[in-house]
Design a protein around this nucleic acid. Sequence first.
RNA 1: GGCGGCAUAGCCAAGUGGUAAGGCCGAGGUCUGCAAAACCUCUAUCCCCAGUCCGAUUCUGGGUGCCGCCUCCA
Length: 513
Amino acid sequence: MIKVYNTMSRKKEIFKPLKKGEVSIYCCGVTPYNSPHIGNARPFVTWDVIRRFFAKSGYKVRYVQNFTDVDDKIIKAANKHSVTWKDISEKYIAVYFKSMDALNVRRADVYPKVSETMADIIAMIQTLIDKGFAYVLDNGDVFYSVETDKNYGKLSGRKLEDMLAGARVEVDKRKKNPMDFALWKAAKPGEPFWESPWGQGRPGWHIECSVMSLKYLGEKFDFHGGGSDLIFPHHENEIAQSQAALGDENSFAQYWLHNGFITVKKPDKSNEEEQVKMSKSAGNFSTVEEILAKYPGEVVRLFLLQTHYRNPLEFSEERIIEAQEFFGKLAKAYWQLDELTRKVHAGEFIKDTSDKNFAITVSPAGGLAEEGERLLSNFYAAMSDDFNTALAITHMFELSKEISNYYGEFTEGKILPVKIDGDIILRVQAIYMEMAEIIGIFEQPVPRDKDEEKSAAEPELVNALMKIILSLRQDARAAKNWSTADKIRDELKAAGIVVEDTPQGVTWKFNAQ
RNA sequence: GGCGGCAUAGCCAAGUGGUAAGGCCGAGGUCUGCAAAACCUCUAUCCCCAGUCCGAUUCUGGGUGCCGCCUCCA
């Protein structure tokens, strides 16, 4: 049973797919006029996890995400740089994909574009006019008439009267009602345009998502999502025009999911508690590209998923560094498991417990197996409860600790490599990777610490020199010449090399900085 | 002004009608020549006031604070 918080009802509801075993999702994509910032990335990472979860739970998923490639901001950017709107949109669609790829966001099944859906958009507007929900002005503008819609405001919980009272917009006098919104905008001189029954122009905002979602998912589909700033007016208007055109107030999306914002500390405020939404218009954003220049994509992804998608999330380097440390621990267990499974495959776990001289009656890894199954079950339970990735991730973290504990005991020789342990290790690895797949990590080269990493990154010479240096230090230690030993360690540290004396011997690594 | 959301330890963050996961930081311990790493242990009257209830952090009402939407916006 999967529960989801539906913005329409303001409640968590039990998810019932329209078609058994299938899920259809439409997520509002970007208007490609500049680079996506970390806040823009949140819904896409969120939906990426949701679809992975559904797919892993046995659903057939169809995921559609649009590009609004015909838009005022794109036209503005094009004019500014003396290029075409298409140059701008293509450039930033490429940037979008590059950033999302780095975050392991899987591609949608379809990426419809406004420019490629023009005929359908015009047809839907015509339907709305024919049915009396929209009207055409002399200059060729077409507006949707909110007063024809008794349900207008049902998603955002607003009444027309209330909105009028507080409207700060400059009201276009030609509108029948100030809240009426444009379905089609007549082209002004120098603007790109498409031919329509109402003259040359281009679609208004909202209409493209109605058309594209209905075209690729049908008159009813399961999920529609995006950031919470889209609730009003964007999604409200999508609902109005779609249901008016279809003549069915139960059509269109069945569940509306909205993610919270990425926030940043408010500048020039003494109170540090105060947060403000990250947005392009406010100019207080960090682009995904900038962040990826400093931190791996999977770390950024983990950072985004460590807070429930509906809650606000403060962007700060401190938090990302914390996520990086956390990721490092998950990665450590990944490699420990890797080593153990290689031993299993190499036939090291073959000791037969039926040997009468063998006292063990219970597999040493039995506890690990039990924990693994329990945590996997908890993991799914967390994801089933409105996609609680924050909780799910802690279950994976707990499993990583269990793995590390087992690995530690194994390397200390406390565990005999019996055959059933081998089977358990393979199962635990499968569980661990299943969790990783849903979260969407370990799809890029998993960082290793210590030996492997440094030997891969540094020339043999460094290893050879370190061997000599550490050997000299061991001589000093053996002679209880602590000051020399510590001096070597301190100076190496200053040079960026950390030496650790562990019970298993001396190790060294490059400082993470 | 209207509408919506949030308020949990120094910080981040889950969650439940029966006195609260996890992470970071901090403290103590094991280990160690020391340090690091690792592991163990410890750290919360759940914003305030009423109400419902045997019992509320969890439900209801009111308040306070913060955020967002009502204009482009993930």
